[in-house]
Structures are given as C-alpha cells and as structure tokens.
Simulated scan of single mutants.
Amino acid sequence: MAESHPPLRSYGRLKTRAIKPRQAALMETLLPSLRPPAEPFDPRALTPAGAEAWLEIGFGGGEHMAAQAARRPDVLILGAEPFQNGVASALRHIDEAGLANVRVHDGDARDLMARLPDACLARIFVLFPDPWPKTRHNKRRIVQAETVAEFARLLKPGGALRFASDWADYVDWSLLRLTADPAFRWTAERADDWRTPPADHITTRYEEKRLGDCAPVFLDFVRT
C-alpha cells in the first residue's frame, strides 16, 4: 500500500515573538471554549440566530474577522489560523468586543474544512494569504485546484468567495485556478471591481503595510 503523506504546509512560521501576558492568558482561558468541534459538524447548528455561517482562512491578527462578526451578530464566523501570535491577537479582539459568534481553529484550515458538510457556508474569505513568492514554493500556496474544489463543495449555491492579495503573481495564479473551475463565476465587470476594496471590506494593519509588490487586488466570486 502506498504511504500517505500530509499536505504541504501552506503557511510559514507558527510563532515569531513572545505572546503578551494578557493574550497568553486568553489562549488558556478563552480559546478552548471557541474551538470548533474536533469531529465532523455542521456550523449552521452553532449559529446564534440560525442565519448562516462564514469561513475566514488565515485570519492573521483577527481584525477583519472580529469586525465582520460585530457587524453581523446573526452569522457564525469560523476562523482558521495556525500562527500563534495571530490567534492570540484575535482572541483579544473577540474578548474586547464580547463576540459570541466566532469559533477559532488554531491550525491548518484544510483540517477544519474536511470536517464540514457540503453546502454549509455562505461566504469564504481568503485575504492576503502567505504568497510563497519563490517559484519552487508555489506548490505551498493555499489556493490550489484541490482547495478550489473544496471551496466549491463547502459553499452553498449563490455563496460568495473573496480572495485578496498584494502579490501580482499570486493574483494571477488564483484567478487562473478559480476561473478554471465551473463552480465559480467571477463577478468583476470593470477594473475598479478588483482595484477598489469592496464596500464591506475591513482594512487591516497588515494590509496597510503594503508588503507585496502591487496594490491590493480583490477577486470576488459567486458559487454557481
């Protein structure tokens, strides 16, 4: 029997600096109550008002996730982030805002997605993921044909997928793979549709740093 191998990591370091004492305490006290079930589950069963569920893949410091959750208390937002400092930061935002509609998976998003049923999500966000800019590392990018197929499986018909990046090559890479899947329709009709942040977008401190090689590009897709 062929030996199975785990998927390549789509993220870099798990920790870069010491976590501040308050955030470290939240990792011990708050995080356990926010983790989604370890077994297969339907996120719609966890929504406060039974409305819908969203997923943010790689939420960074949690600013966008927390702000979206505050705007829509009727929506359950699942967030996945393996970077420990980012998880600690997100917990602070969640705690300060008193948010009850967020669940945090402190690990690989693909592990979380595998536990979710078909057509259970209304929105997926993949915002400024690790670009893996070196050609030999491109295979580590989170957007691959197989993950696009998983996005399609998880989104209900009419559901929305948003990808954003400030690396031109990653934008081209993702656009090619998303438009190649017939399950997705790109909504852009003019250049401003991808050059201008969408009306409901929340700009984060990471985005403002402009660490990439181009202005931020926003690609919005609909699940057909």
Rank of each mutant, 00 (worst) to 15 (best):
Q144F: 00
Q144I: 03
Q144H: 01
A145M: 07
A145C: 06
A145W: 00
E146C: 07
E146A: 14
T147K: 01
T147R: 01
A149D: 10
A149L: 12
E150C: 02
F151W: 04
A152P: 00
A152F: 03
R153G: 01
R153K: 00
L155Y: 01
L155M: 08
L155Q: 00
P157D: 14
G159S: 11
A160G: 09
L161K: 01
L161G: 00
L161E: 06
L161W: 04
R162I: 05
R162W: 08
F163W: 02
F163N: 00
A164F: 03
S165Q: 01
S165V: 04
D166P: 03
D166H: 04
W167Q: 06
W167F: 13
W167T: 04
W167D: 06
A168G: 14
D172E: 15
W173G: 08
W173Y: 14
W173F: 14
S174P: 03
S174E: 06
S174M: 05
L175F: 12
L175H: 13
L175E: 09
L175K: 12
R177N: 04
R177M: 14
L178H: 05
T179V: 14
T179C: 15
T179G: 10
A180W: 01
D181I: 09
D181V: 10
D181A: 15
A183W: 05
A183T: 08
F184S: 10
F184M: 12
F184V: 07
R185M: 08
R185P: 01
R185D: 13
R185I: 09
W186E: 08
T187E: 14
A188G: 11
A188L: 05
A188S: 11
E189A: 13
R190N: 13
R190Q: 15
R190F: 09
R190C: 13
A191D: 14
A191M: 11
D192Q: 14
D192M: 10
D192C: 10
D193W: 03
W194A: 08
W194F: 13
W194C: 11
W194K: 03
R195D: 08
T196G: 04
T196Q: 10
T196K: 14
T196C: 06
T196Y: 08
T196A: 11
P197Q: 05
P198T: 11
P198E: 09
A199L: 13
D200E: 15
I202R: 09
I202H: 12
T203P: 01
T203M: 08
T203R: 09
T203V: 15
T204E: 08
T204G: 02
R205Y: 04
R205S: 09
E208V: 05
E208F: 00
K209D: 08
K209S: 10
K209G: 07
K209W: 05
R210L: 12
R210K: 14
L211K: 12
L211N: 11
L211H: 07
L211E: 12
L211R: 13
G212T: 04
G212M: 04
G212S: 03
C214A: 15
C214T: 15
A215F: 10
P216V: 07
P216C: 11
P216L: 04
V217A: 13
V217W: 07
V217F: 03
V217K: 12
V217R: 14
F218A: 05
F218T: 03
F218R: 03
F218G: 08
L219H: 00
L219V: 01
D220K: 04
D220W: 01
F221M: 01
F221H: 02
V222E: 12
R223L: 02
R223F: 02
R223E: 01
